[in-house]
Write a protein that binds this DNA or RNA. Sequence first.
DNA 1: ATCAGGCATGAATCAATGATATCGCCAACC
DNA 2: GGTTGGCGATATCATTGATTCATGCCTGAT
Lengths: 248, 248
Amino acid sequence: MPDGPKVDTPSAAESEVAADARELTRHRVVEAAADLLAREGRDAVTTRAVAAAAGVQAPAIYRLFGDKDGLLEAVAEHGYDAFLAAKHVDAHSRHPVEDLRAGWDLAVEFGLTNPELYALMYGEPKRGTTSAAFHAGMQILVGRIRRLAAGGWLRVDEKLAAALIHATARGAVLTWLSLPDDQRDPALLTAMRESMVAAVTHEKPAVQDAGPAGAARTLRALLPEQTTLSSAEQHLLGEWLDRLASDG
Amino acid sequence: MPDGPKVDTPSAAESEVAADARELTRHRVVEAAADLLAREGRDAVTTRAVAAAAGVQAPAIYRLFGDKDGLLEAVAEHGYDAFLAAKHVDAHSRHPVEDLRAGWDLAVEFGLTNPELYALMYGEPKRGTTSAAFHAGMQILVGRIRRLAAGGWLRVDEKLAAALIHATARGAVLTWLSLPDDQRDPALLTAMRESMVAAVTHEKPAVQDAGPAGAARTLRALLPEQTTLSSAEQHLLGEWLDRLASDG
DNA sequence: ATCAGGCATGAATCAATGATATCGCCAACC
DNA sequence: GGTTGGCGATATCATTGATTCATGCCTGAT
């Protein structure tokens, strides 16, 4: 059973130049594989073809990535990073809902720009759970969702919002890529996006006043309507909300 | 170059019993492959394993289906037909929009019930264009869309509606299957469905009144900023807010 | 400066798999 | 009854993922 790619262990006496060389060949192999994938499709990405394109021997791939799946994983991560680096995302926009749209568009654009890579990452369901690139992509959205929530725009749970954003983007991209060129209607993408925005956000923020105090005031007023907390919990919650409301 | 599966040609002199026998073995092979796929996953579906399970020789598969892709295509079509036959869809319901919901639910249920098969059919984008099962699945929705259009419920183009329905279902299923069991929230499916309904039809969405959930979500996101409560109080408050936020 | 050890290199190699070739038999058609 | 065509069966080829093994180099210690 292979231990996976060798990594620097604290006890290992490994020179830095060797580690650098290793990182260099690793990068070369990943780029060769990514190029092969984008240029000739997934079936062209064989260990032999990658090794030949990168100028290394076949066993080197297994030393570097453990197995072919490890290589593909590295390719996915590299492709995603490269795309994000090229787009230099501007973190803040005027409106959090606009940020949401921009984030969704970005995810979709990644799929449309790198169809083979996207199919690799999000085609087979099983890969989703373990992929590092999967979480990396989600993480970008989490920050925007948090700001939506802070502004009182979020219509649903944060986790549900993340799932909705991802699912709509995934369906939009895969469906788009499935369609022949002459049937690809850009309206599909905008419709999916706006549908997602409507599902995830309110038209008006649920809280008028900004900051924790404002949110606490709003929740305090609506507290009698809730049915999930016990009366004791509700009572204590009410006191805390009063303190928070008077804090600002 | 294989001509694909042999079919009855008008000029061919082929006895009916031979054709029946052919159909029988064909069916047996398809079922063996489908069983293998559902039971042991896609990687277990090798030509040898299928041939052994069906009690035929490996070359028989190629005589019947042309190549492995033809076999998988047949498996997809068979699986879809079998699912629809088992559900005996009632064609007409009281309301065309309800029909739309039912059709979407059906498509999603198919995916959740046959994850491996669904990944086979809708995982890789390229397969979508040529697959017969792909069009068969779409065709069922087209009828319902037509009735929506006849009733004046359709908000968008019929083709766009079909694409939207398919894309939302595809994203919902693949995302659902990607999530580990403990993170699968049924609300994702209903939210995706209602989002689709809102995008496709004129039915006005049930305006869920704000309620405490929205304010709870807002306060939850802003909780780290508050300075009034102790960390223990904040922790417990966070848990309550999570419960309130996911209530709506 | 010398030497021991580990690690990468390079070739060969294994096992699994998709896909065919070939041969013979049996049944159906003329 | 002869012939043709399809099917069963065995063997086989080519590709590909993955591994083994011996060799040699380079690092780091003595």
